[in-house]
Design a protein around this nucleic acid. Structure first.
Lengths: 340, 340
DNA sequence: CTGAAAGCGCTAACAA
DNA sequence: TTGTTAGCGCTTTCAG
C-alpha cells in the first residue's frame, strides 16, 4: 500500500492502447480529441488513481502555477486578511499560493524572495518589510521575468502594479476628526519615513495641521517600528515632554495599544485628557477599554485587487502600463477619540 | 534585460568545453571531479548568473525539497511561532516550506492537503482543524508515501510522529493552582471533545477535581470553538446559571479573553470573585487588565522537534517506529488567578 | 577524472 | 481525430 508506484499517462495510454500524447490531450480537454476517448481516458485515470505530475508539466510548460506572497507579519489581521483574499481569488484561477513572512526583517525578506524564485513561482505579491531600504531584491524579481505586484508597503520607484489606500488622505480624516473633538495639540507616532506609506501619513498629518492653523512641532513626530513596545516608549516620552499633546495619532494599531496602556497606567483620561487614534483596524482595537479609534484599510479589497492585478499581467504579458490602484480608507470612530 | 534567457548547465558546459554531466557533477561537488574544474565551473556559473532549475532536478530526483505546513490559524502566536521554528530548522537543511492555513475548516484543510500533494512536497507537518473529525485526508498523505508529522492537534489513530505537550497534566497544574487560591467551584470552558488534546484537558480537569474531592458538575463543562465570542457566550451562561463558579478554566486564550470581557462588564472582581485561567500564552494575555494566567505550550520546542522528526523520517525512510514526543508545559500565573 | 546516453513525466509541434 | 517525435533541464549509470 505504501509504494504503490504512482501511475502516469503512460500507464493510462497502455491500458487503452493509446499514446501518452493522446492521453495528455484528453486530460487537458484538448478540442481535437473525441469525446469518447476523453471519457475513456478519464475513467481509467480515476481507476488507476492517476495524479498529474505537477513538476514535469511545470518544467515542460515553463509555468508553475504557483504564486508567492510575502507579508511582513502573519500575526496581523490586516496582512492575514489580505493574504486570504489573494488566496481565494488565485485558487479559483488554478493557482496555488505559497505564503511567506519576512518578520519585518530585510535579510529574511531577501531569503524568501530567493526561495520563491528558486521554486519558479509565476509571480510574487508582496508588501515590504519595515527594515527594507534597498530595493535590489525586488528589482531582481522583475529582471527574472517573474511578475510582481505590491500592496500597502510598496515604493513608486519600483514601477510595478500596486494596490493600497490613500495614506495622505487618511491622515486628513484623522486630523479633521480630532480637531472636531476640540483637540489642538496633536502628536504623531509615525512609521519610518523611508517607507512610502508612512511618509505619506506624516505628510498628510502635517498638511492637515497647517490647514487648521495648528502648530506642527518636530518633536511631536516620532518615527519608530510601530510595535507595542515602541508605542509604550514614545507615549511615555511624550508625557514627559515640555508640553503634553491633547491627542495622539499613531500610524499603527499595535503601537496605539502600547500607547493606550501607558496612558491608562498614568491615570490619564482617554479621550478627555488625551485622545488616541490608531491605524489598520486590527480586531483588538474594538476590545480594549476604551476601544481605539482607527483607520480601516479595506484589506479584503486590497487582497482581491492585488490578485486580479497579477492575473491581468499573466493574461497580457506584454502590457507596459503600470496600474496603481488607490482605495478609499475609512475612519472608525470609537471611544478613544469621541469626546461626545 | 528582461528576457535575458536563463543560463543552464549546458551553457556553462559550452563555455568551458565540457559536457553537461560534468558540470552537474562539479556543481554538486561530486568527489570524482577535479578541484580545478569545479572551480572553473563555479566561476563561470556566477559569471553567467546561473540558477539551478529546481523543477528539473526535483523531477529527476523525485524529491522536491519542499515541506508543507498546515496550521489552523495563522493569526495565533502559538501556531505562527511553531511555524517559524519549523522553518528555521528546515531551511538550514535545504528545505523550503510552504505554509498554509485551514482556518479551522475541514474543507479548506482537505484542499490544502491536495494542493501540497500536487506540488509533490516531501512531507507535511500539520495540526488539525477544529472541525475535522474524518481523518481520511491524513491517511491519504501517508498512502502517497509523503512523510507526515503532526503537532498539538493530532490523533493517535493516525499512527504518525507527533509532538505536543501533556494536556492531561496541564489541567492538573491549573486545578492545583486554583485550589491553592481557595477556589472550590471550578468550571471549564472546553474545546471539542473529538479533538484529542481537548479531551485530555477535560479528563485532566475532572481527575484533578476528584483528587481534591471537589464536585464535578456536567453543566460546568461546556465545549465550544474557543473563539472570543464563544468565551463571551459561555461565560454569560455560567453567570446566569443556578450556581456561579468561583473559577473558570478556559482551554484557549481567545475564549479566555472573551470570558474576561464579560466578567468585567458584569462588574465581577477578577480574581477575587471569579478567577480565570486560559491556555497557550498568547501575547495579549499579559496585556489585559487584569492580565490572564495561562499555560505556556513551548511553541519553540514544538516547532523545532517537529521539524527534526521530519528530517529523521527522511533519513530513515524504512524505520517503522512512531515517535510521540510529549513536552512539559508551564503554568504562567498572572493577575487573573492570583488572590494574593 | 570526464563523456555518452538515457530518462524523470509531460506537452506541443508536426505528421499522418 | 490520433500518433510520432523531440525536448524542458537536470542527474545518473556506465564507459572510457
Amino acid at each position: 500500500m505504501e509504494n504503490k508506484k504512482k501511475s502516469t499517462i503512460k500507464d493510462i495510454a497502455a491500458a487503452l492502447g493509446l499514446t501518452p500524447s493522446a492521453v495528455s490531450k484528453a486530460l487537458n480537454n484538448h478540442p481535437r480529441i473525441s469525446e469518447k476517448t476523453k471519457l475513456a481516458v478519464k475513467e481509467v485515470a480515476v481507476e488507476l488513481d492517476y495524479q498529474p505530475n505537477y513538476l514535469s508539466s511545470a518544467l515542460r510548460k515553463g509555468k508553475s502555477n504557483l504564486v508567492g506572497v510575502i507579508i511582513p507579519r502573519v500575526n496581523s489581521h490586516f496582512f492575514s486578511s489580505v493574504m486570504e483574499n489573494i488566496e481565494k481569488v488565485l485558487n479559483l484561477n488554478g493557482y496555488s499560493i505559497i505564503m511567506t513572512q519576512s518578520n519585518e526583517l530585510f535579510a529574511k525578506e531577501c531569503q524568501e524572495i530567493d526561495t520563491l524564485l528558486k521554486i519558479q513561482v509565476d509571480g510574487i505579491i508582496a508588501s515590504m518589510a519595515n527594515e527594507t531600504t534597498d530595493l535590489g531584491y525586488y528589482e531582481k524579481i522583475k529582471s527574472k521575468g517573474t511578475e510582481l505586484v505590491m500592496f500597502d508597503r510598496g515604493e513608486e520607484e519600483l514601477n510595478v502594479d500596486y494596490v493600497g489606500i490613500d495614506d495622505y488622505k487618511s491622515s486628513h480624516l484623522v486630523v479633521d476628526h480630532l480637531v472636531a473633538q476640540n483637540c489642538r495639540r496633536i502628536a504623531h507616532i509615525a512609521g519610518f519615513k523611508h517607507i512610502r506609506i508612512y511618509k505619506e501619513r506624516i505628510r498628510g498629518y502635517q498638511d492637515a495641521l497647517e490647514k487648521w492653523n495648528l502648530k506642527t512641532e518636530d518633536n511631536w513626530i516620532v518615527e519608530c517600528n510601530l510595535r507595542i513596545e515602541d508605542g509604550r516608549r514614545i507615549m511615555q516620552q511624550l508625557l514627559d515632554g515640555p508640553e503634553r499633546p491633547d491627542a495622539v495619532y499613531v500610524a499603527g494599531d499595535m503601537a496605539a495599544l502600547g500607547a493606550l496602556q501607558v496612558l491608562l497606567e498614568n491615570k490619564i483620561k482617554v479621550p478627555d485628557e488625551i485622545a488616541l487614534i490608531g491605524f489598520s483596524d486590527e480586531p483588538f482595537t474594538s476590545l480594549t477599554q476604551p476601544s481605539i479609534s482607527t483607520i480601516n484599510q479595506n484589506s479584503d479589497q486590497i487582497g482581491k485587487l492585488a490578485a486580479e492585478a497579477f492575473l491581468d499581467r499573466v493574461k497580457n504579458p506584454k502590457s507596459k502600463t503600470i496600474n496603481r490602484i488607490i482605495l478609499e480608507s475609512e475612519l472608525i470612530v470609537r471611544q478613544s477619540s469621541k469626546r461626545v
